[in-house]
Structure formats: C-alpha cells, structure tokens
C-alpha cells in the first residue's frame, strides 16, 4: 500500500520510494528511506495535508505527494 492510505494512528515500514526528481529526493533527504518506521500522526481539515511521525520528528506533506512512498504495515501498530 502507499503512504497516503495509512490510517490515523497506524504505523508502517517503508518499502520503496518511487516517483522521481525533486520530490523523491526531498523525501529521501528527510529520512523516508527503506526500512524506516513511519506513523500517521494527523490529518488536516479537508483531509489534506497529513502529518507523519518518523525518526523522532514530524513532517507535513500532501497526500498526493505521499502516494509515491510504498509501505507495508508494521507488526506492532499502536
């Protein structure tokens, strides 16, 4: 599944970062890399953008941008 589909409060592990160019590099630079654990922390009014928790900090991004990140659910989702 992709990052945009993650439900509020659930965690997942990054499998691959697709896309290309600036957006892809930006995600990789921010630590969204293979094996990283991410949690869906907040969804804005109107459903967009969203906030994810990773590597000890929080990041806001648009759902459409998040869709390039492939994830698989983590075993121990809170």
């Amino acid at each position: 599944m992709q990052l945009g589909e993650l439900k509020l409060g659930e965690s997942a592990v990054v499998v691959n970062v697709g896309g290309e160019g600036q957006l892809r590099k930006r995600f990789l630079d921010l630590g969204i890399t293979k094996g990283t654990r991410v949690t869906m922390a907040r969804i804005a009014p109107f459903g967009d953008p969203v906030e994810i928790q990773l590597r000890g900090y929080r990041l806001t991004l648009r759902k459409s941008e998040a869709s390039i990140v492939e994830i698989e659910p983590a075993e121990d989702s809170e």
Partner: peptide, 8 residues
C-alpha cells in the same frame, strides 16, 4: 506546484 513538505 512545489512540494509542500514542512516540519511543524
């Protein structure tokens, strides 16, 4: 549109 990736 530029990516809107931001830290709160």
């Amino acid at each position: 549109p530029s990516p809107f990736v931001m830290e709160l």
